[in-house]
């Protein structure tokens, strides 16, 4: 069974005037079919307004399809009775670290999800400890979130999700407001949860250098999935990415340009080392 499955998912923002008449319809998602296997690390790329955040909110049953359907762990998100189980099993981390921390002490915030699920006290304490350790924030458990850096706050938010024992985490642009250091912290935390805890990850971003760890990348544009493949496959299509208002990391672009000039360099170079190695092979 797929962790996440969508069929012909379409979502429209409908704006109405004061009389309730439809003023405009904005199709944010347009016929998306997505299959995510358990344990996968999936990245969804897209420019601002491409519909990627709207898609994420469907997986957490925060929005419901106008047409089509979404299943999380086999449960249809449109059915009211599945709501809590879906939100528990596919936890969501949002963009703004400040606006998703509810409590004023780190550990109390991590306990918020399990409290809502009615988990017994002893078990909550155990989960809070485990989750904070999993994201490397255990030593900050008694602190106020206001004193933490952006990256640390996001790790607390991730711990808050982990404490609900999800099978999947959906991260909606978790690094957009962070500095490079914070971004690294969050991405490496996510990678380790995927590797060690076998959590399915759906990372939504427009930072190109964050998707190189993903098993599979989807590119969205105007509500549609327009490209999909491994990071290497996606990054070898530089011109196409630019058409969708995206970009590639500097080293990928350099490799692409050199290849265009006629140097024998592989497609979709992802790291500095790869490019250096490729050039060294050419140089006798």
């Amino acid at each position: 069974m797929d962790m996440i499955k969508t069929r012909d998912l379409t979502f429209e923002y409908i704006r109405r005037d004061e009389g309730g008449n439809v003023e405009s319809i904005n199709r944010a998602i347009d016929g998306v079919n997505l299959d995510v296997k358990k344990g996968d690390f999936i990245a969804i790329l897209g420019a601002n307004g491409s519909g990627k955040s709207t898609l994420a909110k469907h997986i957490n049953a925060l929005l419901y399809p106008t047409e089509g359907a979404v299943w999380v762990n086999g449960l249809n998100t449109a059915e009211e009775k599945n709501l809590l189980e879906i939100r528990r099993s596919a936890g969501m981390v949002f963009q703004n670290p400040d606006n998703q921390i509810i409590a004023t002490v780190v550990e109390e915030d991590v306990g918020f999800g399990p409290e809502n699920l009615g988990i017994p006290t002893e078990e909550i304490l155990k989960r809070v400890e485990e989750s904070l350790k999993a994201v490397g924030m255990f030593e900050y458990r008694k602190q106020s979130p206001n004193k933490l850096s952006g990256g640390q706050k996001q790790r607390v938010a991730i711990a808050g999700i982990m404490a609900m024992k999800p099978q999947c985490i959906v991260l909606d642009e978790p690094t957009a407001m962070l500095d490079p250091e914070g971004r690294k912290e969050v991405i490496s935390t996510v990678c380790s949860l995927n590797k060690l805890e076998k959590i399915t990850v759906l990372l939504i971003t427009h930072h190109m250098d964050e998707v190189i760890y993903a098993d599979k990348v989807f590119v969205m544009d105007r509500g549609k999935i327009v490209m999909q493949g491994t990071p290497r496959e996606i990054f070898s299509r530089v011109d196409e990415l630019k058409k969708y208002r995206l970009d590639v990391p500097q080293v990928t672009e350099l490799a692409y340009e050199l290849k265009k000039e006629g140097l024998d360099i592989p497609d979709g170079v992802l790291s500095i080392q790869e490019l250096v190695d490729a050039l060294l092979r050419l140089y006798p």
């Binding site: 500097q250 672009e253 350099l254 340009e257 050199l258 000039e261 006629g262 140097l263 024998d264 140089y283």
Partner: peptide, 18 residues
């Protein structure tokens, strides 16, 4: 990227395959 490309091509120009 442009500077790097030009610099590398200077050294690798004989490796260019048409």
């Amino acid at each position: 990227v442009d500077e790097a490309k030009n610099e590398i091509l200077k050294v690798f120009k004989d490796k260019i395959q048409k």
